[in-house]
Design a protein around this nucleic acid. Sequence first.
RNA 1: GGAGAUGUGUCAGAGCGGUCGAAUGAGCACGCUUGGAAAGCGUGUAAUGGUGAAAGCCAUUCGAGAGUUCGAAUCUCUCCAUCUCCGCCA
Length: 424
Amino acid sequence: MLDVKKIESDFESIKTSLGNRNFDTSLLTEILELNKQRKMLTTASETKKAEINKLSREIGELKKNKQDAASLMNQVASLKNEMEKEAKELDDVQLKQTNLLLNIPNLPDSSVPVGKTEEENVEEKRWGIPRSFDFTPVDHADIGEKLGMLDFEAGARITGARFVVYKAGIAKLERALINFMLDHQGSKGFMEMITPFIAHERSLIGTGNLPKFEDQLFKLNSEQPWYLIPTSEVTLTNIKREQIIEESEFPILYAAYSPCFRSEAGSSGKDVKGLIRLHQFNKVEMVSICSPSQSQEIHQKMISSSCEILEKLNLPYRALRLCTGDMGFASQNTIDLEVWVPSQNKYREIASISNCGEFQSRRANIRFRNKEGKLEFAHTLNGSGLAVGRTVVAILENYQQKDGSVQIPEVLWPYLGGMKEIRK
RNA sequence: GGAGAUGUGUCAGAGCGGUCGAAUGAGCACGCUUGGAAAGCGUGUAAUGGUGAAAGCCAUUCGAGAGUUCGAAUCUCUCCAUCUCCGCCA
């Protein structure tokens, strides 16, 4: 959430910034207008309330002395009437303003390239050389199905399209990757966590998934407004919701494995085959909560940590700095990692690492006490480390053999009881 | 799921419906004291919003929300969380 005071004082630059995100900036004008009303109504109703409070004290005095207070009470009654009307208007205005604010994305950092679409993302790094095959590489879904270890039909039978059943060797590979990734992140100082996989509305507002992106979430049919989490970024970040943190605890570094649930509304026809786009997938996620002065450095740390995972797995990848038009709602600066997918002959997203600045902590009210003893909003960051299903895609495809078997990256051998390849 | 209890500031813990943003401890900060420290003494110790150049003033906040009342931490209702007992389970 943006600071209204900032919108007031830096109106033009914020307008440009959000324009670069393809955002309809007329909302900003509306917010300023509401803010004027808000201030007026606040002053008006508070003045009346002050008067009422004063009279009430006088009434108390009179009553104590057994004197007649009827005329004062009449005065209060009529003041109260007006005050309540104004207070109600104020509530309306405030609600409207908050709703608008909750729908405004974060401001891109000055280092973010300006651009309209993903075409204008900037490649910052390329690592590894895509393998040249002496046969035509098969896509991962076919590899998995031929091995009898990825069962999309069973997934559809149980639940529906975009669900899968992992079996035997590939199920083990998925589990091994989770463990490997958590161990790696742990070695970089990220505390391993297990969080709920269901979160309530306030948490999802905190991270920016609500109110704007409700159609991308699975909502439970429960008494409480509960949702399946789309990523454990939600739960990890909200661990500190409404909390005041001592600066000495910073930087907080968390890592968690969780399944992620996404409705994928609006993506019909995209990546219909295979593991790339499922309603449920596994991910290891990193989250950091830190002070503003630390956040850039932590961002870098998270990026290199995830890069190292790909390097240890010997998977070719590239890093992109997302342009203003392609960045996520809550982010002010995002690096995507894309892994090489031979069957598609291109790089596909496998991680997204974002610095959200104080955008989320304003929504979730995550604050810390700085050296002067004053309260300040913390910075939050999140990043994949990594998407596990897509890592399986990359391993199956990049390590496939002509006979349909798949070699296992050496770093995973200890996680698989010494198993070095997957074969039927 | 059933029964009961509780929810106050950084923590512990008071609080007759009016002068309570809230006693008292502890903690913390500063000062005095001391060769230095401890003890002792003194002072200070919330957030958010409005207004103001500032000092300040005003409003709101005692788990959350609604209500009763001229006036609510204090009364009523709903919800949430925690604890104890019972039931049911992984």
